[in-house]
Structure formats: structure tokens, C-alpha cells
Amino acid sequence: MTKQLLSLIQNETLKIWKKKRFYVILIILAILVPIFTYAQSVMSSRSADRFDDWRNQLQEQITDYENTLSSNRIPEEWKQFRRVMVQQLTYYLEQDVNPNAPNAVTFTRGFMSNAVTLFIPLMVLAIASDLVSGERSAGTIKMLLTRPVRRWKILFSKLVALTFYVSLTIIAMAVICYLISGLAFGYGGWGLPVFTGFVINGSDVDTTNVHAVPQWQYVLMQSGLIWFAAMVVAMLSLMVSVLLRSTAASIVTMMAAIISGTILSNMASAWEGAKYIFSVNLQLTTYLEGTPPPIEGMNLMFSLLVLAAWSVGSLVVSFAVFTKQDILN
């Protein structure tokens, strides 16, 4: 039983590897990361030119925000965000910590936090979206399902292989970011204190629980959340791959769902029901950073629960359909 499952997982892992999807991901990362590293270094050298002291830069940012706060033309929701930012920046200033000091670890943290809504899901799709539909369009599913193995075991082994590659993708992303950006910014920054534990209550940032953690610990916490978000995308695209016969259609469907989530979260928070859409909840890292969520009433626990519900639902659908469906083509 266990031996059989291990063999099946070995099969699925091997197939994804031999399809060379993971190489493609590595190549994309190896091209993109240097570009962002360059952009970041240009930005830091500019601000270094303008400010002798990073405290002045922070102070100016705070003044900027405060100016917009006093304006009447800015909508209330935007003001709320600015108020939170001002409080955070003031906190950094009081603690004498430069949040923008460029180093490899900070770069990695920033890159991964920004990648969580679009870039990482795209990488996940590259692996997940043809897991089942690819076997169908190639016809190999007929060989696969006529072997003396229960269908749920086959889908389960695909899921395990997928989990493995999603984890590997996130690790690879962190490692590549760190190694490449380190060339420009130096490999330090592990111990830099980062503040977390902000609790957002309406327009106030509750700083009573705020504490500094070393940046390595923060990156670890953040990676856990990113992994969770990526796994949700993986399970959803596995479901779409079971339901749709064509790989292209399953990629387009998932991309549409993910992009619409990003658009919805940027379109301010008028429609409260949008908070139950999975793709609006993918940006889990905002809760660590203390930036306000796209829609009022969302918090870390809420988002985790919404995402968990979506993944459980998609797993139920995937297994129910895959084990029962007739293979007609």
C-alpha cells in the first residue's frame, strides 16, 4: 500500500521533472531577479544622493503623508491607509531602525512579498495546470487509468508531487533572490530587526503587540504564508485541470481568476462580499507588514479560513470528478 503510493509519487515527480517545467521557472527567475535587483540599486542610490541620513528620508515620507491627510479632496479610505503608514514609520524612527536599508535579505523579503499575488501563482500554474489535462490531451490517461491502481491514488500522488514542486519553487525563489541581490547589496541583513504584530482596528493601528523580530525569522514566517497561498492556487488549478480538457483553457481560467482578484483588491473596498473570493485573500504578507487589508474586516485568521475553505472545496471536487468521470476521448 505505502510502497505502491511511494512508487506512484515517484512517477508523478519524475514526469514533472522530465517535462522541464521547473527549469523554465528557474530560468525566468534568473532573468527577472537581476532586473529587479538593478531597479532596487538605482532607487537606493538615488535616495542616498538626496538624503545624507535615512532618518531625514523617513521624516520626509511622514510629512508627505500628513500633508495628504489634511487635504479634503482625498477619500476617507485612502486617509486611513496613510494614517497607518505614518504610525508605522514613526515607530521605526523612534526605534532607530532603517526599514529601507538595502541588503540581500531585505530584497528577498520585499520581492517575495510582492510576488505572492501574481508572480508566484503564475509559477504554480506552469506546473499545476497540465497535470491532469495534459494527460488527457496526450491520451496517456488511458494507459494511466487502465493499470490496476485506484484512481484516487493517482490523483493523490499528483497532489503530493505538486506540493513538492510548489515548495521547491518558493525555496528556489528565495535562494535565487538572495544570491543574486547579494552581489549588489551584500549578503547581510539576517539580524536586522523587523517590526511585526500590528493589529489593525478600523483606522487605528494597535501597536500594543508590536515587537521586533530578527529579519531571518520574519522571512521564515512570511515564507510560510506565501507557501500557504501558493498551495491554495495549486489545489485550485489542479481542480481546473481535472475539469477542463484543454491545458490552455485551464491556464486562462486560473489566470483570469487570479488577476480579477488583484483588480478587485485595488478597486477599494466598496463591495464587501469580495472578501470571500480566494484571490483577494492571497496577499497574506500584508498582515505581517501591518499595511491595511484591501477590504475592511479582513484579518489574518479570516483570510486563512477563506483560503482553506476554497482549497478543501477544490480538493473535494477534484477527487469526486476524477474518480467517477468517464474517459471518452
Binding site: 512508487s7 506512484l8 512517477n11 514526469k15 522530465k18 496526450a138 491520451g139 496517456t140 494507459m143 493499470r147
Partner: peptide, 25 residues
């Protein structure tokens, strides 16, 4: 069985295909 065309994984070698299906037995 072979249902319709003999469709095997084109990105694997013949041997790897056989190993793949052998693991399922």
C-alpha cells in the same frame, strides 16, 4: 491493453515509460 493509439509519454524514453508503468504493477 492499448486503447486506440499507443499513447506514451513523448518526453520520456521508451525505457522510462516502461519503468513508469512497471511501478504501477
Amino acid at each position: 491493453c492499448i486503447v486506440e493509439n499507443p499513447e506514451l509519454y513523448p518526453y520520456l524514453s521508451g525505457w522510462e515509460n516502461l519503468e513508469h508503468f512497471a511501478r504501477m504493477l
